[in-house]
Every structure is written in structure tokens, then in C-alpha cells.
Write a protein that binds this DNA or RNA. Structure first.
Lengths: 354, 354
DNA sequence: CTGAAAGCGCTTACAG
DNA sequence: CTGAAAGCGCTTACAG
């Protein structure tokens, strides 16, 4: 590994040739030798620290470039006590919410040259605990915990001082930092959009009642209706998030109150089922009945005819915020409580003004 | 950090209390002190290496447990030269293929206590290169490169000896190791399923021609038809992967040959569009026309009425295989060439025998 | 069976 | 401005 056969102490190239190990990566020591400086100076130069002469620094930089030097991450991590790595634990990667959160977080963290170590707990609390231990033993600088539902979840309650941010599912512990979407706001958004289009007989088809998302969206929708002096058209029913449920609920609605002129569905799948029933019943969308979904899931929202107006949960933004909050917490400025990221209405043909 | 105020050298608890640093994690040295052995012995005991007495080992294990000792990963990584970490680079995390591959890989690797460092190149070749460099500087033991299409992609052509496995999109370099799905097999599978149900006038609706997946599936389908002495019913057209294209192509088909009794669609979205047209045209599915999709995308395949028979690419299995191949390569047994994971037919109502 | 010592590659007071 | 030295936490020949 050490230089062999150096002809001239000043001859960079020959040194480079002789110093470079046949296979392995070059080390800081190789760089220092090539630049003709000490380890300490090479390190300072590379890290952009003050007390180094400009010419010296330049020489070191050149040498590093010549050797394609890459600092050994493990060594840096060991001495600095920080790994520039965070752990991201998902309850479930399969659903369509975790991935965009992951994408947003990875993107935001990348700009801080922080990498993401991924663990999938697959909905298993024991596995989650194990993964947390693994990540901790890998000296992660922080943790992001992603769950696929907005139902609050128990805190990790770490004894270690590693900061944690909960994304999508907030922690039940108000001391913890959480980011999720504003489901009440989403409910309001949907109703206000329909009101603005002149609809007055607005019905609601809920998702699964066991989901906070479902109850919160319904509460927001009711609130907006009330503010306009209205009540939901027909009964508000909860079921699940499926197309089949959308068909069933819309059927009920039609039997109950044929005058309905708009339907707020709590998922795009529900909306799709709802659309099918309306078509079959001969109602024109959006002329007779406007329909709005939720999730802005392109495969559905752009597959229907007309396209489906929907509400986007902005999951990528949630991931981005979670990352930003974690970075701040790692810097010592911890957040507490639940931060809400607003949802976004995406208008398409199913509610377009006639 | 060192023990202070030890009353009795043999009193484990008091030592534990006094040795434990107020905040930080305990180190191997803490464990050794508590167990009354040297660093070397503690290390050997913990790593399950031979030359340690059983009683001594027990004492060390106890001490480690008592102190909730977790080895410092950076230190181990530095000295062992292996990080027990692999890098996984995706071209795109948003699509629905990358995620299951990721899940499969993470799962398989986890069983080897190897963690996954995730990078999302977002379809940007420069970003990909950067990420590769970052991952390499983090001493990953291997790399999995995931692309969202099965079109062959350029090799990373690493100069470093880190093993690489390409998943979904195979590398163009036959020296590299790749895993992807058997699209020709999938084409055959679809046709053979329909033949077995007695269909003879089988049409094909292709996806986007620029995709190898599309051409390969068509080739497989043609091959199976030929083997039965048949040719595709009507023209085989390519378009894109959308519902709209499915509608359009099915319309053409109906005009061209009204006798068609089965349609192989190269995506579930295409199949969905195809189903809508058939319903509208008054054809019963599956009685008059059987329809088969591809991707087994539950939101579509289980949303239609009847449910859509489809073909699953087994992406999770692809991820699992990629991980297994990488582990073998890290162990010195490198793979070469492209391995195909068979697709799986998932029968549902749209092809069910009457 | 056990332990003292060197070393992995780097950073950072500290002294010049 | 520059460098010798200690140290991060661990593992592994090597000598007892």
C-alpha cells in the first residue's frame, strides 16, 4: 500500500502510479503522499477547513482528483460520530402512499448528502422493533417512520437520543414530531369546489369508518356544507375503499334521493364505481351529477370518461417535510406535535363546469 | 467513560452502573470491563469464535445483555472491510414495478442481515452515476440496479470490484448478471389458457411497441397460436398501455372481425378499456368473449365486473432472486447473463369457463 | 483459553 | 500555515 520506488518526491505522476494500490481504493494517505503533505493537512484541505494555504489546498485537491479519492465512509462515520444516514421504516411498502413519501424524503435528504437505509416492517410490530434496533446499531442519525394510514400510531419511545419523525400516521405522543395530510381540509376542499360550481344537493360516500382519514374527510365536508347552510344530500354511509362499495352506495343514494347533483367520494375507486352506476342509470357526468374522488390515482382518475376530479394527498410533499423536520431535529431544533400538509384539488372532466 | 468508584472488581451491577456512560451507547470495552475480560476475548465471545472458554463466553454475553450492547457498525465496517449494506438504485420509484422488486430484495437481504441503501435516479443518467459514486464511497458490498421497463439498459461498467445485479431491465453486457420476467412465456401462458378453454379466434392487443415487453409478449403469444395451428384473429396492433388505447383497439377489432372469442391484452389497463367496449357492444364476458390482461394489478383486475384474469410478473420474486444472486456474487460466485423468472397466470371471471 | 498490541482510515486538538 | 499524535470502536494475528 505504501509508495514503492518513488523516483522524485515531487513527481506527482510517478508517485500516483506507484502509490496506487493495484486493486483497492486510494486512501487519504495516498492523497497526502502524492500531494506531498501530511495526513492532517490533506484532511483539512479536502474538508474545506481554514488553516490551509491556497496553493497547498489546490495541490491536495488535484491529488485527490488524480487518484479518484473517495473518503472511506466508515472511517469518517466512526470518528465523527455521525453517519449521514437515516433509517426509514415503513409499515408497508406495497400500498401507494408509502412510495411517494419515500421518494420525497429521499429527494430532500439527498440534498443534504444524507442516505436512506430502508426497512419494511410489513405491518409487523415485532419486525418493526427489530428493524429499529438494527438501524440504531448502524448509527443512523435519525429515523422516519412511515405508516400507510393516517390513523395515529404508538410512539417508538426510543431511549436513545436519535430524533424521529412520523409520516402519514402521526404518533399518539404529542411530544413526537409528525407530518400528515389535512383530511378535514380535503373534505372542505371537495365540497367548496362543488359549491362553487353551483351544486347544492351534494352527497357523501365514505370509505372505511375505521380509518381516521374517512372520518376526518367527512367532518370537513360536513363543515363546509354547514357553512353554506346545507346538509348532505341523502345518508352518509361508510363501507370500504373499493369500486364495489362505490357502486353499492351510489345505488342506495339514487334510490334515496334522485335529485342528487354531486357526489363526494372518499377514494378514486369508490368514485369509479359511482361513475359506472351513474352511467348505467343514464345520468350525465358532470351535467346531471358531478363526481369527485380522492387520492388522485392516475390509473383511475385518468382512465375514466370523463376524467375524474380528485384530491391529491401530496404524499411526496409529506415525505419532503418529514425529511426537513428530521434534518432540523438532527441539528438540535426538535419539532413537536402534528403538522398538516394541505391536500390539493385536481380538477378534471367529472366536475368541469358545463 | 472509564469505570469510576468500583467497590468490588467482581460486582457486576455496581460496575455496570458506574461504567455506563450517562448518555452514549456502551462499547465493547464497557462489556469487557463488566465481564472482567480483555477486549479481544469479549470480541471473540460475542462473535461466536472458537478459542473462548464456555464460562467466559457466558459472562461476556451476560454483560453485553446487561449493557444492551450494540456493536458500532462503523467500527466493524472499517476493520472488516465489509459494510453488510448494499445499494439499490431505481430508475423510478413511482411506477408499480420497482416497489415490489424493492420489497422482495429487502426481504431476502434482511435474512442475511444486510441492509439496503436506497437511491432514486428518477430516470436521470447523470444522477444515477452520482448515486453510484455515493454508494461506492459508502462501501456497499454490492449493487442492485432496478429499471421500470424490461428494455435492456447499458451496463454500469464499474471499475471497482463491487458486484452488481440488474433487475427488471437486463444489462446489455452479457458478462453482467441480470434477472427479469419471462415475457415470451407470459404471451404463451395467456394463449394456452384461452386455448384450453376452447377459444380459437384469439386476438392480441399490444402495448407500446417501443417496449421489449410488448414485442416479447406478442412473440410468445404468436408462437403458442402457431403451435396450435392458428394465427391471431384480426390485426395485431400496438399503441400504448392505457385504457383509452384498449377501447380504441377493441373497437377496431370488432369492426374487423366480429367473430373474435378471446382477447389477450398486454396490460390490465388495456384490458379494462377493452371490457368497456365489449359491454357497450353487448358482448358477454366471458361467455361471448374471454379477456385476459397483464400485470395482475389488483385495483383494476379486482375492480372490473367480472374480475379480470391477468398475468403476474412476479416482481417480488425478481427482487428476491436479484438479492440472492448478489449475495452469491458477494461470496465470490458471480452470475452472468440474463435469468428469467416465469410469470404466473391468475384466473378470474373474465375467462372463467361458462 | 486469554490478552497486549497493531491497525482499519479518518479527524481534530495541539504544538510548532 | 503545517504536521505528529491521539483516538473513534472494533477485529485479528500473535504470543503467552
Amino acid at each position: 500500500m505504501r509508495a514503492i520506488g518513488i523516483v522524485s518526491g515531487q513527481n506527482g505522476w510517478e508517485q500516483a502510479l506507484s502509490t496506487a494500490s493495484p486493486e483497492g481504493r486510494s486512501t487519504l494517505s495516498d492523497v497526502a503522499t502524492l500531494a506531498g503533505v501530511s495526513l492532517a493537512t490533506a484532511s483539512k484541505a479536502l474538508r474545506g477547513q481554514p488553516r490551509v494555504g491556497p496553493a497547498t489546498r489546490e495541490r491536495v485537491l488535484q491529488a485527490a482528483q488524480q487518484l479518484a479519492y473517495q473518503p472511506n465512509h466508515a472511517a469518517q462515520s466512526l470518528v465523527l460520530g455521525r453517519s449521514r444516514t437515516i433509517g426509514l421504516i415503513t409499515s408497508d411498502l406495497q400500498g401507494r402512499f408509502s412510495t411517494p413519501i419515500l421518494v420525497g424524503a429521499e429527494d430532500a435528504l439527498g440534498r443534504h448528502s444524507t442516505s436512506v437505509l430502508l426497512s419494511n416492517a410489513r405491518g409487523d410490530a415485532d419486525l418493526e422493533r427489530e428493524h429499529v434496533q438494527t438501524l440504531l446499531s448502524r448509527n443512523v442519525d435519525g429515523l422516519i417512520v412511515v405508516n400507510a394510514e393516517t390513523n395515529p400510531r404508538p410512539s417508538l419511545a426510543l431511549s436513545s437520543p436519535v430524533p424521529v419523525v412520523y409520516a402519514y400516521a402521526p404518533s399518539t405522543d404529542a411530544e413526537d414530531a409528525s407530518v400528515t395530510c389535512d383530511n378535514r381540509g380535503a373534505g372542505r376542499l371537495a365540497v367548496e369546489h362543488l359549491l362553487a360550481l353551483g351544486r347544492r344537493r351534494i352527497a357523501l360516500i365514505g370509505g372505511a369508518r375505521s380509518y381516521a382519514a374517512s372520518r376526518d374527510r367527512a367532518a370537513g365536508a360536513r363543515q363546509a356544507l354547514k357553512a353554506a347552510g346545507l346538509a348532505p344530500c341523502g345518508s352518509v354511509r361508510f363501507g370500504d375503499w373499493s369500486e364495489a362499495w362505490g357502486r353499492q352506495a351510489m345505488q342506495h343514494l339514487l334510490e334515496e334521493d334522485a335529485e342528487v347533483d354531486a357526489v363526494v367520494c372518499q377514494s378514486d375507486q369508490i368514485a369509479r364505481g359511482c361513475l359506472d352506476v351513474l352511467h348505467f342509470a343514464g345520468r350525465r357526468v358532470p351535467e346531471d351529477v358531478a363526481v369527485i374522488g380522492h387520492d388522485n390515482w392516475d390509473v383511475i382518475a385518468e382512465g375514466t370518461q370523463p376524467g375524474l376530479t380528485s384530491i391529491d394527498n401530496e404524499c411526496e410533499q409529506i415525505g419532503r417535510r418529514a425529511a426537513a423536520m428530521l434534518v432540523e431535529a438532527m441539528g438540535g431544533a426538535a419539532h413537536h406535535g402534528v403538522e398538516l400538509v394541505p391536500c390539493r384539488l385536481v380538477p378534471r372532466g367529472s366536475t368541469a363546469p358545463a
